[in-house]
C-alpha cells in the first residue's frame, strides 16, 4: 500500500509557476485522454437510447444468468484465495526457511502469465484431449466448457492478489507481537485471531477488493475454458463480447457500465483504505 505522503509539501526549491502549470496541464491532458474519455464513452453509449432500453437490457435472461455465473465464480474464488493468501503470508512472513524467496516468486507467477495461457493450461489438463480428459468423460464430469472450468480459471488468475498485499505487510509488522502472545500462553489460533488478524485487516480488505475486481472482470482465461454457451457458461465479460459482436451496442455497453461501476466502487474503496492508513499529511519538512 502507498506509504508516501500525499499532503502539503512546501518545497524551498521549486519550479517556476508557469512550468508547474504546464506540467500539471500535460499530466491532466494525458490522463484525461486515456482514462476519462473511455470512462465517459461507456456511459454515453449505454444511455444513448435513454434509460428505458438501458434497464431493459438487464432484464434479459441471458444477462441475468451471466450475472449469476460471475457472482458464483467470484464467490468461490475470493474466499479461497483469501484463505490461501493468509496462509502463505503467515508461512513467509513469520518463519525463515530456504526457498522462501522462490515461494514468493512462485506465488507471483499467475500474475505474470498471460490470461490465455491461464485458460490453456486447464484445457490441457481437463479438456477432452487432455490428460484427465478420458477419466472425466468416463465419469460423466465436465470441467472445460462448463462452470467448474470457469471457476478454476478464475481462481488461478486471482491467486496472488491477497498474498501480494499481505506478505509485505506482515513482514513489516514483524513477529514480536505474536511471539509475545505465545510466550504469554496463547494458543496458535488465538494468537492469529486476536493479535495478527486485527493488525492485517486493512491489508486483507484491500487484497480482497482487488481480488474481487479481477475475479469478476476476468476475460481472457475464462474465454478459453468457457464454451461461450449463452445462459450456461457465460460470465459478464464474455456476455459483453457476444453482445458487442452482435452490434447490440446499447446492451453491450449497459453490461459494461455495470462492470465499470464495480470498478469505480473498487477504486473508491481502495483509495479510502489508503487514505485511512497513510501517514498524517500536512507535516512540513
Amino acid at each position: 500500500m502507498n506509504t508516501w505522503k500525499i499532503g502539503h509539501r512546501r518545497r524551498p526549491v521549486s519550479e517556476a509557476p508557469w512550468i508547474r502549470r504546464l506540467l500539471i496541464g500535460a499530466a491532466l491532458a494525458f490522463l484525461g485522454f486515456f482514462l476519462v474519455v473511455p470512462l465517459a464513452s461507456v456511459f454515453a453509449h449505454a444511455l444513448a437510447k435513454g434509460f428505458g432500453p438501458y434497464f431493459a437490457s438487464f432484464r434479459d435472461p441471458f444477462t441475468l444468468s451471466a450475472i449469476k455465473l460471475t457472482l458464483l465464480a467470484a464467490g468461490i474464488a475470493v474466499p479461497l484465495n483469501c484463505v490461501f493468501g493468509v496462509a502463505a503470508a503467515w508461512a513467509i512472513a513469520k518463519f525463515d526457511f530456504p526457498g522462501k524467496q522462490m515461494l514468493g516468486a512462485l506465488i507471483d507467477l499467475p500474475f505474470s502469465v498471460s490470461p490465455v495461457i491461464s485458460g490453456l493450461i486447464y484445457v490441457l489438463l481437463f479438456g477432452a484431449q487432455g490428460m484427465l480428459g478420458p477419466w472425466l468423460a468416463s465419469h460423466g464430469l465436465r470441467v472445460i466448457f462448463a462452470v467448474p472450468g470457469i471457476v478454476l480459471a478464475t481462481i488461478f488468475v486471482t491467486v496472488p492478489f491477497v498474498a501480494r498485499e499481505l506478505i509485505p505487510l506482515m513482514q513489516a509488522q514483524g513477529r514480536s507481537e505474536e511471539e509475545a502472545a505465545i510466550v504469554l500462553g496463547a494458543s496458535g489460533w488465538k494468537t492469529f485471531w486476536r493479535v495478527t488478524l486485527p493488525n492485517i485487516r486493512w491489508g486483507l480488505l484491500y487484497g480482497v477488493i482487488l481480488c474481487n475486481a479481477r475475479a469478476m472482470g476476468e476475460f481472457g482465461a475464462v474465454s478459453v475454458v468457457s464454451g461461450h454457451i449463452r445462459g450456461l457458461t457465460n460470465t459478464l465479460p464474455l456476455h459483453i463480447e457476444i453482445l458487442y459482436n452482435e452490434y447490440n451496442m446499447v446492451g453491450a455497453f449497459a453490461v459494461a457500465s455495470l462492470l465499470t461501476l464495480l470498478a469505480l466502487v473498487t477504486l473508491a474503496l481502495k483509495s479510502w483504505i489508503e487514505w485511512r492508513n497513510a501517514p498524517v499529511s500536512g507535516a512540513e519538512t
Partner: peptide, 22 residues
C-alpha cells in the same frame, strides 16, 4: 490519484469495447 488505478481495476473487455468505440 485514485483514477490512475482505473486500468488496473477495469475489466479488460470493458476497456476493449470502450477504446474501440472511441
Amino acid at each position: 490519484d485514485a483514477l490512475v488505478d482505473l486500468p488496473f481495476a477495469l475489466p479488460t473487455a470493458v476497456a476493449g469495447i470502450a477504446l474501440t468505440s472511441i
